[in-house]
Design a binder for these strands. Structure first.
Length: 466
RNA sequence: GGUCCCAUCGUCUAGCGGUUAGGACACCGGCCUUUCACGUCGGUAACAGGGGUUCAAGUCCCCUUGGGAUCACCA
């Protein structure tokens, strides 16, 4: 039983955001590296705020990132009877008690305490109460020690300690009988045998309470690792106003999962000077000790750079497959036109996202595209008509319409006529793709094929003749 | 406000007592070139401040300042 068991425990109140994804990633990496288990648990004790759509969205995000889990997903809402049992156990042992204070009373106390500059902690009114009050609604509170120190050695931040007097008697069961987060998380992590808890550092303040609960319940306390949060450019918590925070939104914006994974893991973790990590390398090299202690700013530019890197080196066939839906959004069906894989190859070095790849690929499949106004005015002039005609005649004699042959034809053409590539290149480019930006014209011509190339040249010829 | 955490280029970071403080993104130049990119070469740019400890401090300690998290019948 020395196997490490880690978990990711999101609450289904929204999509999977990048911060959560990074936490999940760290857990997953450590589990894979150590040959342990990675468990997915849905924290839906707040029945009112939890939705099935959110669960689905989170699962989709996990799958897209390739974070497969070994056990689960488990739902806390399935375990309410179990939690109730533990509450009873604590009650019976005198380690918890019923509190009859109403939410309104507590709110009032909290406000006045805050106003007077005192700590807004529960004052313990019901702690010493004698017997039950059968007809009154109540919550169950954990009877926390009021003195002493609770400390733990965080795997990332080092030793962290709290004076118990700072802690109050937290509610472990609501008046409607449902358990609360801090209690449930302990029961679950304990009963699931979680050995290491990696979570956002917004949980550090919960940790001492949870440790106390573990001890009260007689369970071993797991190791904790609190990962710093992700900030926006203005150093405040990353939110929608900084841009997309949903993992799936990044997919829709044309990012590759390996790019997002690489980016997210490097945000807060490092391995010497290395920037690029394959999934296998991450599993091999990841250690929780190399996770930094301070919060990091999400840098979209660097993500973009990584994405460009993975597109550049990606398998053209795979990229072509991923590209289809992006093309469909533009009303393009790549089955009627040049081979999409060949198209992708001409674009890989100049696209940073699948969106850009789709934009760049569009002209291959459009037959009656418009010419960019400025470009047409500058290059589609009557004077180039003879050039077009001569070039087409020469091209027509090519035995095979390949990059090499086409290039040789252009070279020879320029030499014969004593002109420079700059005089024939731009007009041809516009004829082929309608603008001044495109892959190299030799490769474009090869991918387009002889017939389509000639048709486009002919079409431009007609256009420039008025 | 209490508690807890954090602090190296604009950003992500390397550094684990002795370094010309390194890399990456971004930015600015050169080269390459049929366009746009890619690539390549080079450049600008950082140890928050103040005290200690030490022969020696970005590295260790303390304080200040500045950020952040958290103080729910949310998770």
């Amino acid at each position: 039983m020395s196997e490490v068991r880690l978990r990711f425990a999101p609450s289904p109140t929204g999509y999977l955001h990048v911060g959560g994804a990074r936490t999940a990633l760290f857990n997953w990496l450590l589990a894979r590296k150590l040959g342990g288990k990675f468990i997915l648990r849905i924290e839906d004790t707040d029945v009112a705020r939890s939705t099935q759509e959110s669960v689905d969205a989170i699962l989709d995000g996990m799958r897209w990132l390739g974070l497969d889990w070994d056990e689960g997903p488990f739902y806390q809402s399935d375990n309410f009877p179990l939690y109730k049992e533990y509450v009873e156990k604590l009650l019976a042992a005198g380690k918890a008690y019923k509190c009859y204070c109403t939410a309104e009373e507590l709110e009032a106390k909290r406000e006045s305490a805050l106003k007077e500059g005192r700590k807004p902690k529960y004052d313990g009114t019901c702690r010493a109460l004698g017997g039950d009050q059968p007809d009154k609604p109540y919550v169950v509170r954990f009877k926390a020690p009021q003195e002493g120190v609770t400390a733990f050695d965080d795997l990332i931040k080092g030793r962290i300690s709290f004076n118990n007097e700072e802690l109050d008697d937290l509610i472990i069961q609501r008046s409607d009988g449902t358990p609360t987060y801090n209690f449930v998380v302990v029961i679950d992590d304990a009963t699931m045998g979680i050995t290491t808890v990696i979570r956002g550092d917004d949980h550090v303040n919960n940790t001492p309470r949870q440790i106390l609960l573990y001890e009260a319940l007689g369970y071993p306390v797991p190791r904790f690792a609190h990962v710093p949060m992700i900030l926006g450019a203005d150093k405040t918590r990353l939110s929608k106003r900084h841009g997309a925070t949903s993992v799936m939104a990044y997919r829709d914006m044309g990012f590759l999962p390996e790019a997002l994974v690489n980016y997210l893991v490097r945000l807060g973790w490092s391995y010497g000077d290395e920037e690029i990590f394959s999934r296998d390398e991450l599993v091999e090299k990841f250690t929780i000790e190399n996770v930094g202690r301070s919060a990091g700013v999400f840098n979209p530019d660097k993500l973009l750079w990584l994405n460009a890197h993975y597109i550049k080196g990606g398998d053209p066939a795979r990229l072509a497959g991923l590209l289809v839906p992006f093309l469909a959004e533009r009303g393009i069906d790549p089955t009627s036109g040049p081979d999409l894989v060949a198209v992708v190859k001409t674009l890989q070095e100049r696209a940073r996202t699948m969106l850009e790849l789709a934009d760049g690929a569009a002209f291959y499949y459009l037959r009656e595209f418009e010419y960019e106004e400025q470009a047409a005015a500058k290059f589609l002039k009557p004077e180039v008509a003879p050039l077009y005609e001569a070039l087409m005649a020469k091209l027509a004699t090519l035995p095979s319409f390949t990059h090499e042959g086409i290039e040789a034809t252009f070279k020879g053409f320029c030499e014969e006529r004593g002109i420079k590539m700059g005089q024939i290149g731009p007009p041809v480019r516009i004829a082929l793709c309608g603008g001044t930006t495109s892959p190299g014209i030799y490769e474009v011509m090869e991918v387009l094929g002889a017939a389509e190339t000639m048709r486009r040249l002919e079409r431009a010829l007609t256009k420039l003749r008025g």
